[in-house]
Simulated assay, not measured.
Amino acid sequence: MKSTTPPNGHLPQRLAPEREFTMRFTSTPRGARLARRLVSHRLDDWGHPYTTPLNETLTLITAELTANAVRHGHVPGRDFHVRLTLAEGIFRVEVTDTRAGKRPPASPPATDSLSESGRGMLLVAALADDWGVSPRRAAPGKTVWAELHVRPKGHPLSYRAAPEPTDVDLLLATASLLRDDPGSRPEDAGHGRRRP
């Protein structure tokens, strides 16, 4: 984790967000996909088109956090919440689930190169400027959050050091698995035909 959560579990108060998107989703893989897509659409509405590094990075972070909420934070009959805000040049995505017991590790562990899972928080740590976990307010559960600092033009403020080359390959392979069915990608929009 790039920063520690304060002992009381609450983060310092920030000014009211300039922009905010909040929604509740069913704790299912379909809910996680919908959350990822709506965050991407909202960023596009806010002036950060789908193919920009900011939109792609925040969408990927959202995908990882929501997938973890479904896989590790699921409590039967309970939903998870997503909150995306922009305040003071900082985009923040928060995913809140109702399971307090399972928290992400303080620093993502190294994974076996043959493992099919376990890279989600490693990816979040590599992409986000800051991330952490705090207890859910007034109810059982937790909020896992990640922040990305941006310049006025919407580009990341700084370039972060990349993980080891072998980790990058694994992260890219993991990211490619997050894409939906082939028909939903723009290059496949012509009824299965690729654009020239």
Rank of each mutant, 00 (worst) to 15 (best):
V93W: 00
L178F: 10
E64V: 15
W145I: 14
A139R: 13
S113C: 00
P196V: 05
V124W: 01
S117Y: 07
G183D: 00
N8K: 02
D79C: 14
D44C: 03
L122G: 15
V39E: 07
F91P: 03
L171F: 12
M121T: 15
Q13H: 05
A100T: 15
V75M: 07
P165L: 11
E18L: 14
A139F: 03
R160S: 02
A100S: 15
V95K: 08
L127A: 09
L84I: 10
R137W: 04
L84H: 06
A173M: 08
F91E: 09
G118L: 12
S176M: 08
R99C: 12
I90R: 11
A16K: 13
M121L: 15
P53L: 09
T26F: 13
G154M: 07
L86F: 10
V150P: 09
D97H: 04
A63V: 11
R160T: 04
A128P: 04
E88F: 01
A173P: 00
R195S: 02
S27P: 11
G31C: 07
F80D: 13
A125G: 03
P140A: 13
G190A: 00
V75Y: 04
T26E: 15
P109F: 11
T4S: 14
V70I: 14
A138S: 12
G9L: 08
L58N: 04
L177S: 10
D180S: 11
S184H: 01
L148W: 01
T111W: 04
M1T: 09
T4M: 13
G183A: 00
M121R: 04
M1D: 01
A175K: 03
P12M: 10
A16W: 02
G73E: 05
R195Y: 05
M23T: 13
P182F: 01
A189E: 00
R137V: 03
T62Y: 01
T66K: 02
T28G: 08
V70D: 13
E116W: 06
G132H: 03
L86C: 10
R119T: 15
T98L: 11
Y50N: 08
T174N: 03
L60N: 03
D167G: 07
R19V: 02
R99Y: 12
D129P: 02
P156F: 01
